[in-house]
Simulated scan of single mutants.
Amino acid sequence: MGDTTSLGRMRKNSTRLDHVVLWVADPVAAAGFYQDAVGLEPVRVAEYADGKTGFPSVRVNEETLLDLVPLTAAERMDMLPGAADAAGHPVNHVCLALPAAGFDRLRARLEERGVPMSEIGHDSFGARGKALRNFYFRDPDGNVFEARHYDD
């Protein structure tokens, strides 16, 4: 694991988050939500729709994806005993850190689409210290996200 002195000095082989797998009812619709409402880039959606890959993703940044895995694939999750049982057991939430302007654009896009959101909070602790502002929202499959920014 990295220490706080490596914050900001990313190396090709440093430890960092690669992807998070989200269980979704309709991966194409989920990718549309994340593209339109959240502003993330879709990856492999056409390939998934053509049956060429098992799931699409959306890109959070150049090194992190959210994989949008259909709930129907749970029975094939056999990498560990009991792995299929993770279907329907969501993580409490995933947090996206954005620049201040991106934070404001995300909140506006969600509001335009009628996505329920929490009030804006302040001074929430995270990987980079205390965030100036944060809020929570839920995707159409019930996955909870936090959006935050650390500086102006």
Rank of each mutant, 00 (worst) to 15 (best):
H19W: 08
D151I: 00
S57L: 10
G82L: 07
G114H: 09
A131G: 13
R11W: 04
T53W: 09
G129Y: 08
H122N: 11
S118R: 07
H93P: 06
G39E: 07
F135M: 05
D139Q: 11
Q35I: 00
G51K: 02
Y34E: 02
Y48W: 10
H149E: 08
D104Y: 00
G88P: 09
D139E: 11
D152Y: 02
F33Q: 02
G8I: 10
V43E: 12
L65T: 07
Y48H: 13
R11G: 15
V60E: 06
A29G: 07
P90D: 06
K130C: 01
A30H: 03
N13Q: 13
A108R: 13
P27H: 03
G121A: 10
G54Y: 03
V45C: 10
A49M: 06
P56Q: 04
L80T: 13
R148S: 14
Y150E: 09
V115A: 08
N134L: 01
L40V: 07
T64K: 09
A25F: 00
L7N: 11
V43D: 10
F33E: 03
L17R: 08
P140M: 06
L66A: 05
R59P: 06
A108C: 01
R59N: 06
L132N: 07
R105F: 01
P90N: 13
V94N: 07
C95E: 14
K52N: 11
D50Q: 14
P99R: 12
D36A: 12
H149I: 04
A37G: 07
L110C: 01
F103C: 04
R59A: 14
H19C: 08
A83L: 09
E112C: 02
A73I: 00
L110G: 04
G82M: 03
M10D: 14
A100M: 06
F103R: 04
K52W: 01
R109T: 06
S14C: 09
F125H: 11
D85S: 14
L96C: 02
L65S: 05
S118H: 05
G39R: 07
